[in-house]
């Protein structure tokens, strides 16, 4: 695959380039829909499409007014504030509880490990609409529907499976003899945890936390049902915007979100490399 041998037949050469063209088209399909909104968000008119001025690269065709709208419109600002206050709290809960549970699950001799794992992973498998329906019924029964903490708890529950999976994966490569070595030199379990185990599994914890954060930050179905108007988040505002009145401000918000995901993606990639480096240092 990597290079064409000198004796390749014409058909092989044709296929070699043909295959690359097919792949390029699929990559085009993957990436262009995301990139196309970026120039459109600078549209000076209120349309969702490229105007003549934009195609002619006329500076009058471009403006920042949709960004201005995003940063001044009270609806969008309220949504942004809600998103920023819900997601970190949910992340904190799911990362904290999830990390502890993942460490517990990685010990040998845990009874009912399979069942416990299945229960803890279930929020990821159950479709969001079903989780949303169940949470709506149950939370309105106990008076938590439409409250800040209702939404936070719901989002924390949705985020924990990601934390469990990533932290468990880091712990698989964790060398247990390091803990034993620390203990044999007189460190108590708490010191061992913070001085030895924690720094080594940190990349897994952070990437699990990022997954939990993005789950909450992007989530719309559950918040739509469990939240009330005063918990309206950014995705919710985008959803109603897309369904009711289509305003190009959505594209400006989308561009901001794409930028955030690029930053997150880069952070994760750096963390993964660091984790591999750290794992390479420990024997086994």
């Amino acid at each position: 695959m990597s290079a064409l041998p000198p004796y390749a037949s014409k058909a092989q050469i044709a296929w070699y380039y043909g295959f690359r063209v097919i792949c390029a088209l699929i990559f085009f399909f993957l990436i262009v829909p995301i990139l196309v909104i970026i120039p459109l968000s600078f549209n000076a008119s209120d349309f969702f499409t490229f105007t003549k001025e934009m195609l002619a690269l006329d500076p009058d065709g471009y403006s920042l007014k949709h960004y201005r709208d995003f940063f001044t419109n009270p609806d969008w600002q309220q949504a942004l504030r809600n998103s920023v206050s819900i997601a970190p709290m949910a992340t904190l809960i799911s990362t904290g509880l999830g990390t502890l549970a993942a460490i517990g699950l990685s010990q040998s001799h845990v009874p009912f490990r399979g069942t416990i794992m299945a229960i803890l992973i279930s929020p990821m498998i159950v479709p969001l609409i079903i989780s949303a329906a169940g949470m709506y019924f149950f939370y309105s029964r106990i008076g938590m529907q439409g409250t800040y903490w209702g939404v936070v708890l719901a989002h924390a529950a949705l985020g924990t499976p990601f934390v469990i999976i990533t932290v468990t994966a880091t712990l698989v490569g964790f060398d247990k003899s390091l803990v034993r070595a620390a203990a044999s030199m007189g460190a108590n379990p708490v010191t061992t945890f913070f001085k030895v185990q924690m720094p080594l599994i940190m990349p897994g914890v952070i990437s699990g936390g990022l997954f939990a954060f993005i789950t909450s930050f992007d989530e719309v179905v559950v918040v739509l049902f469990v939240g009330s108007a005063s918990q309206k988040t950014l995705p919710w505002q985008m959803f109603t915007g897309l369904r009711e009145q289509i305003s190009p401000t959505i594209l400006a918000v989308a561009t901001v979100l794409v930028t955030i995901s690029i930053i997150l993606l880069t952070t994760l990639e750096l963390l993964r490399r660091r984790a591999e480096r750290l794992r390479g240092m420990s024997p086994g």
């Binding site: 809960i93 509880l97 999830g98 502890l100 549970a101 460490i103 517990g104 699950l105 010990q107 001799h109 845990v110 009874p111 416990i116 229960i119 803890l120 279930s122 929020p123 159950v126 079903i130 989780s131 329906a133 169940g134 949470m135 709506y136 019924f137 149950f138 939370y139 029964r141 708890l153 719901a154 924390a156 529950a157 924990t160």
Partner: peptide, 24 residues
């Protein structure tokens, strides 16, 4: 010890997620 580490999350998921599914 392992169980004590798991219990908080297990209880949390049971209340915030499994109970709603049961309610449904």
């Amino acid at each position: 010890r392992a169980f004590l580490l798991i219990v908080p999350l297990l209880a949390f998921i049971l209340i915030s997620f499994i109970a709603p599914i049961g309610d449904m």
